[in-house]
Structure formats: structure tokens, C-alpha cells
């Protein structure tokens, strides 16, 4: 057990699975490297997540592609239909818009529309979310929209430990998984075992426990929720359950409903815009199945209904933060 960044934890997961299963390969832009004057030049991914793979496994299993997202996803899914275990990398979740058909009409549907005669065990890794001042087209989350599609599984880790275990599960899964890596968390560190381990999908984590208010958060919002919960506990003696579903699909409904049954108060936090998103989804779930447990109206903390702005001041204003979460908790306790 050592302290590792999310980048290194993800990298370890890739190395474990490449070693374990020769059918696993990685395909995407700048994921591998090339030969120059007979010497390997490694790229290892724009964010360094795939470092070392090209040197160890070569171009046969670490395939750099043209900037052609539809071809990347098609190549991965076609190989998966023929028995391989591809991991496709899309550099930014925003760019799935370029290959949306290949994901939602193709990969998500194969098993169903072909009557169960095939599997498409593909993992699509991508960076997600704001916080790097990357502007409107490189900062969106996109995991809410994909969560709405049956046939896909969605994972959004909030820390290095979960990232490694969830990615290993994703690669071993028989179903297609969209794996969202919050780009601001690549350098965030926590204790991560050296060996391979799998975290099952559909099981929420609860980084904080408390009986007063339930906080449900996704991705990097989990960290803000934890900071808010710690602050509330320290300064006000308010105790919060902080629930990180980890996989929006499949969703661990039980953990959320059980927590709300105990606390009677719910705040849902996500950095995506408010409409048709995970915050509205969780609020609707609790309104539908846990309404009688509620002692106060549900509050959500989200980004506004605007594109992600670039300037530091504006992005700071756009993203949720612990202060806004604390204010929401105060409202549901009022």
C-alpha cells in the first residue's frame, strides 16, 4: 500500500489488465508512441495515464490513431464483437459528441437488437469535468447524458483508490463501460494497493457517515461534499452521510434510499448543468421512492444552465463548491 495519484492508479490498472489478459488493448489518440531512428518514442497519453504500455507491449496492443473519434470507437467495438477486450481513449468527454452514434446507437444496442447473440466488452476512457480552465468544449462532464442510455454502464471515480478498482472491473466487464476520469483529480493522491483489485459496479461508497443530512455527489463533487461535511461537523456539529455512487449506471439506489430514510434530508451535488442531469435524477428517485421519509424539500447544487466558461473567476463561479453545499444543507435543515 502506497500513496498514489489517480493518474498512477489508473496506469497500474492498465498494466495489471494488459498483463492478465492478452486480448486487452488500448486504442486512441497519442496513447502509445512511435519509432524514431529505430528507437521508441513514448507518448503515453496526453495526461500520461498509459505511460509504459507502449514500451512494454508495442504498437500491436497500444494503438495510436488518427484524430478520428468515430473510427476509434468503431474499431474498438468491432474488435470487441470479435472477442477482443479493447480500451478506447477519447481525450475529452466533450469529444464523444463526434462519435455519439458509435456509442449510443451501436455499442449500447448490439446485445439487445441482436437478441443477445453477442457481447461488446469495450471500455471507453475519457477525461471529464471542469477545473482546468479548458473552456466550453474541453470541460463538460457528459456522464449524465450517457447514463440515460440503457446498454451502457457508467463509472465516475472520485479518488485514486476507486479509480483503480473501478477501471479493473470495467475492463473485466462483459458489457460496454464508459469510464469518466475527472481531469483535475489526476494529481490527487490517496492510499492505493499495489496489487490488482476490482470494485464492483452498483455499490456506492460512503466517505462520511452521519444522521442529519444525506449528501449524494458524483466525480470531483464528492470531494467538495466531503469538505462541506467536515466543515459542518466541525463548526456546527451537523453530521452528513456523503454518498458517492461511483457508477451512475448501475446506480446503487438502496444506499441512497436507506440513508434518506435515516436522515430525512437530501442534497444532491454535481458539476453538470441542472437540467436532465444526475441531480434531477437522484431527486426524482427519492421523490418517487422515498418521499415519505423526507422532512424537507430536496436541494440540488449544480452548475448553472450555461456553457463552461474559461476565465478563472468565471469557472470558479460556475462550479459547485463546499460553501454552496453548506448553504444548501442549512436550507434543508431550516
Amino acid at each position: 500500500m502506497t500513496i498514489k495519484s489517480m493518474r498512477d492508479a489508473l496506469n497500474e490498472a492498465l498494466h495489471h489488465e494488459f498483463e492478465r489478459d492478452p486480448r486487452v488493448f488500448l486504442i486512441g489518440e497519442d496513447v502509445g508512441g512511435f519509432e524514431k531512428d529505430g528507437q521508441p518514442v513514448e507518448i503515453g497519453g496526453v495526461f500520461g495515464v498509459s505511460k509504459g504500455l507502449y514500451r512494454k507491449y508495442g504498437r500491436k496492443r497500444v494503438i495510436d490513431t488518427p484524430i478520428s473519434e468515430a473510427a476509434i470507437i468503431g474499431a474498438a467495438s468491432g474488435a470487441a464483437l470479435c472477442g477482443m477486450r479493447p480500451i478506447a481513449e477519447i481525450m475529452f468527454a466533450d469529444l464523444t459528441a463526434v462519435c455519439f452514434d458509435q456509442i449510443v446507437n451501436q455499442i449500447a444496442k448490439f446485445r439487445y437488437m441482436f437478441g443477445g447473440q453477442c457481447a461488446c466488452p469495450v471500455v471507453i476512457r475519457m477525461t471529464t469535468g471542469g477545473g482546468r480552465n479548458a473552456g466550453a468544449q474541453h470541460s463538460q462532464t457528459f456522464y449524465p447524458i450517457f447514463t440515460s442510455f440503457p446498454g451502457l454502464k457508467i463509472a465516475v471515480p472520485s479518488n485514486a483508490y476507486d479509480a483503480k478498482g473501478l477501471l479493473i472491473s470495467a475492463i473485466r466487464d462483459e458489457d460496454p463501460v464508459l469510464f469518466f476520469e475527472p481531469k483535475v483529480l489526476y494529481t490527487e493522491k490517496c492510499e492505493v494497493p499495489d496489487e490488482a483489485y476490482a470494485i464492483p459496479f452498483g455499490e456506492a461508497a460512503m466517505p462520511r457517515e452521519g444522521e442529519d443530512v444525506t449528501l449524494v455527489a458524483f466525480g470531483q463533487s464528492v470531494n467538495w461534499a466531503v469538505q462541506a461535511a467536515d466543515e459542518l461537523r466541525k463548526t456546527r456539529g451537523i453530521r452528513c452521510d456523503v454518498i458517492d455512487p461511483r457508477t451512475p449506471s448501475p446506480l446503487d439506489e438502496e444506499t441512497i434510499l436507506e440513508s434518506v430514510a435515516a436522515t430525512g434530508r437530501l442534497v444532491v451535488i454535481d458539476e453538470s448543468p441542472p437540467r436532465c442531469g444526475l441531480t434531477a435524477d437522484i431527486a426524482a428517485l427519492v421523490a418517487d421512492k422515498g418521499f415519505r421519509d423526507l422532512k424537507a424539500p430536496i436541494k440540488t447544487v449544480t452548475a448553472p444552465h450555461t456553457p463552461v466558461p474559461q476565465a478563472r473567476e468565471l469557472e470558479r463561479a460556475y462550479l459547485p463548491n463546499p460553501r454552496r453545499i453548506i448553504a444548501a444543507v442549512e436550507e434543508v435543515l431550516a
Binding site: F25, I73, G74, G78, C82, G83, M84, Q106, F110, F114
Partner: peptide, 25 residues
């Protein structure tokens, strides 16, 4: 037969993946 496909042109990239599986194995 990996499927008829109702999205025009969508089969081409997927068949590239099938060809990739052949080459890789």
C-alpha cells in the same frame, strides 16, 4: 454476419474493428 445497420455509414468503422481483431490475433 455482424448485423445489418440502420445508421448509414456506421458499419464501416465497426468492420475496421473486426479486421483489427483478425490482424491482432
Amino acid at each position: 454476419m455482424l448485423g445489418a445497420n440502420a445508421v448509414v455509414g456506421a458499419g464501416a468503422p465497426i468492420a475496421v474493428g473486426a479486421a483489427l481483431a483478425s490482424a491482432m490475433t
